[in-house]
Design a protein around this nucleic acid. Structure first.
Lengths: 226, 226, 226, 226
DNA sequence: TATGAATGAGAGTTCATTCAT
DNA sequence: GATGAATGAACTCTCATTCAT
């Protein structure tokens, strides 16, 4: 809004994020594949720059160097190309430069710290995209639901870790692992959002220290005896 | 999007949330004041039902029972009436039915618990409005910044409480009160969002218990000796 | 096609003729009523000149002297304004200048002749509109069905007349009144179409004579004894 | 319209049905001939299924199993391939399985009956194509004119038959053979249209009986003395 | 010659905002 | 001051046709 040009006009068509639907098949020729890839890259640039709502298809095609009509050779709607961008970015996020996490060893505190750092650094690297995700989530209920479901898996994994710590007597026994996992993950996620989207001026080190401390205290994790 | 009618299109002129701007003076006649109030109430209904983006001015004026053109007698833009709605809701939120918080006494744990419960109950009561706030924040940077600043005060107040607990030796001394306040508040806020906007199916009691426990542990608050 | 300008482009949106649907209420102000009427008149001009398919909304609004966007103040689609045109024309057709048919008396042959003449004269007067009806019927199945149902009533009425003639012994007894009514009415309708749309060069008198003769013979109507 | 997908949009460039124009020469290779034939068959399928207007060239080429661009190797426009389809269907219609018509003998009533039956049965067999013809005729004036001229010959032939009957004293002498031929043929054609396009629920036997009776009465054909 | 991607000229549609009555 | 009709700038989406490979 205020970040858009004067008198900007924004259209939305509700093609929907409801699901993958009839996944359109990829173009067969190298040229087609190249154009499609260009389009996705262009869309990412425009989305991250203007937000989902202010992004016009014509901006995307212009950025991609093709005509407006050609958009529809590859995608049916802004929502559909957004999903493609999302897939691309997620693909990209899954190629970490051999995460140091594994080198951490068994110390649960070190593990929490490493996980928090990894999360924050990833968030920072993809900050414009993360902001975009937040926007789309706040706009579209289906997308929100989709995202919630994905988060579920992450929370469950964390909950199991907490449970194991409890079983080993390393974490407070009277803590609900599910809720603790959910709420503490949320704390970190929101801290990242505050830092990288809202622009709070903390260093990552500060954040890692503080978040890890709060997390560890909250779960009453005792330092590893090793 | 998914919740909007097929092919709905929304326009926006970026009047902006940048600030109070030239605060428009209130109408002088009782009738004018009544119409203005109707308009705000109508806007709240429509905003909460359709979201900020899908809300059309004509829907608001229709809901208010006045003509489309009369809107501009009272407000200059959708953003401006949104601010008025926000002011009204916040006014309403400040009239608590004699909050029991004060009855809590000096026990810091009981205070944290009471504060968490109060927050969640208030969030629940205003859930549609809270969702609306999230949406607008994700859309508009100025609004986001405005909101961040307001939150600041709240965080500072909490930080001072934490500092006092530390000074009394009731909370961990090595905790950064500012960050802890920010992050723990964020945890609660996000939990409320997950529950009342995303629809996670927790009871408020569960949430209060778990959040209070995590909060208290995180700050290493020891039970009051009294 | 060939009758449209070179490289003309024709769009069709399937709003549908399925039914009256949610009949939009009339404008309340005189100005609104005037504009709506202008729009209908303009639509009739454009439809009759260009056909349904080649008629563009912007042609209609231009003809009506209003802006393109204003169209949607009154109608939702080309189909909807077409229905309004149809209603208007039918209204107009129902104001005959005191049809002479009644003056014909009891002679069945004279009655058939009078009916045929009235039909042909009316068809001639509304020839451009009749051509339009044919086109729309050939394009849209719902409209076709609608029209078929309306014709039904007319056929039934004729069938009853035939039945009465048979009962009075004035028409052949072994004729199926329903089918005869349908087929003979169809013969007259098609003759009118051939004359006024296809442009066959018969005089109305010729047509009346010949059609009446065929009709009368077909039903074996004997001349009234009077 | 109602039969087309939501919001379908159709473009047309008026290549026109004006005439054979520069008849494009047939492809020379067997492969080319096969592709051309496939294209025509595909076009017939698509035209009959979707109507002329809603048929997209890409649908036709897809149905034919060739690429979009290749269309122009064989035809210049939708109109042109339509003409080819028409030619093909008419060719097909001219290969009757040794029509029993000739076996009818000299009885004029039996001849009329046989002709009517043959017409109706043929119409039924080609009903989707006949509907298509009606549509195109209603859309394009040149095509309409073309068709009218072709019908002329048929009407003339019938008119001559009627004349002969009159000369033999078997039909009413005061009937205009031209007009009678035209109008009665029209009656049968329209009955067929009502049955096979509009969906009236008559049996062919009913129709043959009734139409023959009306036709014979109309012409005052007396039963053959043989 | 076949391919299929690219084009581009529109048409329809929306709605914040203006303004004559 | 209120009304509600009128405006017009945007934007999406289609598909016959072209053209580089």
């Amino acid at each position: 809004m205020s970040s858009s040009p004067e008198n900007a006009t924004r259209h939305r068509r509700s093609a929907g994020f409801a699901g993958p639907a009839t996944e359109r098949e990829l173009p067969t020729t190298p040229r087609g594949l190249r154009t499609r890839a260009n389009l996705i890259d262009a869309a990412r640039v425009v989305f991250e720059r203007d937000g989902f709502l202010d992004a016009r298809l014509v901006d995307i095609t212009t950025e991609a160097g093709i005509s407006a009509g050609s958009f529809y050779t590859y995608f049916d709607s802004k929502e559909e190309i957004f999903s493609a961008v999302q897939a691309e970015v997620e693909e990209e996020m899954l190629h970490p430069d051999v995460r140091a996490v594994d080198a951490v060893g068994d110390d649960p505190i070190a593990q929490v710290r490493a996980a928090n750092r990894a999360y924050l650094e990833s968030y920072e690297r993809y900050a414009p995209f993360m902001r975009l995700l937040e926007q789309v989530a706040s706009i579209d209920e289906d997308f929100r639901e989709q995202r919630r479901k994905r988060g579920e898996a992450f929370v469950q994994r964390n909950a199991r870790s907490i449970k194991q710590l409890q079983d080993r007597g390393v974490a407070g026994a009277d803590i609900d692992p599910q809720l603790a996992s959910y709420f503490l993950s949320g704390m970190v996620a929101r801290a990242a959002y505050s830092r990288f989207v809202l622009g709070e001026d903390w260093t990552i080190d500060q954040m890692v220290d503080s978040l890890t401390q709060l997390w560890v205290n909250a779960l009453q994790i005792s330092p590893s005896a090793d």
